[in-house]
Write a protein that binds this DNA or RNA. Structure first.
Lengths: 141, 141
DNA sequence: TGCAACTAGACAACTGAGTTGACTAGTTTG
DNA sequence: CAAACTAGTCAACTCAGTTGTCTAGTTGCA
């Protein structure tokens, strides 16, 4: 429950600050899309769906939104004529940088509240735990 | 992002184990309802809605489900003839104990992965951060 | 005291982010 | 080569929320 509540507080703050920027109605799930596409250039919608743990249709819908908004573009897939390769546009990359800065800000506040040493321990602990738990990640928010 | 992913992994595990018990289709949000009602006997649906950060109608729906499933019951409100006081049934309390045990199990596994000392630090850090952030909590899951 | 303003819960219609099903055209494999 | 599989698209559907409305109950103030 502690994790849940902490996560909630941080996410709320993230989204409050995001809302101040008057961007498109980006959801937390979009964050995972951006990150995945940044890490996997030329991913397809089906790849993304598997990664996100949703149906291909849901992934395709999300991608369509991001394409409409100018964050992602679709190019012909190098080897499969049925598929599109999805890549972040410059706007998408700029958003990712902005989001990273925002999360860094929130972590700074966490450090201010609990101490930088503790934050370091927390980080290490979480990284260890996640290394031990590798698998697909699906956003819950 | 670390928080998000950690949270996700733990929640997934919680719900996998919950599914093994063949209970009603309880959602993560229900967890918050149980806890709130345990802490606030005689809460009303509107109280719950405010706490959860949802509309009164959404809260009422959720309560109706839990009433149907036997976890919550409604009694006349002591002072307001329009309202119902919501309380956990024995079944509701038993579920809460079970859920707590399950979270404790997950925390044990966390400790096994990262060390009990680190878990303690993590706990303290999160509690400090939350104490600094008090406000309504709404489940994101 | 009476009345305007407010409010709890219920009912209803709606939204949107997912789901499943179906289909066509493209791909893989034996 | 053909059967089996699959990417993306379209469509219908689900469900956990939303907003709007309404009636009866409550509060506060003149």
């Amino acid at each position: 429950m502690l994790f849940a509540r902490t996560f909630r507080v941080m996410t709320d703050r993230f989204h409050e600050r995001l809302a101040e920027r008057d961007l498109e109605p980006l959801r937390p799930a979009h964050g995972f899309v951006f990150r995945y596409l940044a890490a996997q250039p030329s991913a397809t919608a089906v790849d993304l769906a598997a990664h996100l743990g949703v149906s291909k249709q849901a992934a395709t819908k999300t991608v369509a939104e991001l394409v409409d908004w100018g964050y992602v573009h679709r190019t012909p897939h190098p080897t499969d004529r049925r598929a599109h390769a999805l890549t972040l546009t410059g706007k998408g990359q700029a958003y990712l940088r902005f989001a990273d800065a925002l999360w860094a800000e929130l972590e700074d506040e966490f450090a201010a509240a609990v101490g930088a040493e503790r934050l370091t321990v927390v980080r290490e602990a979480l990284e260890t735990y996640l290394a031990d738990s590798e698998g697909g990640i699906r956003p819950v928010w």
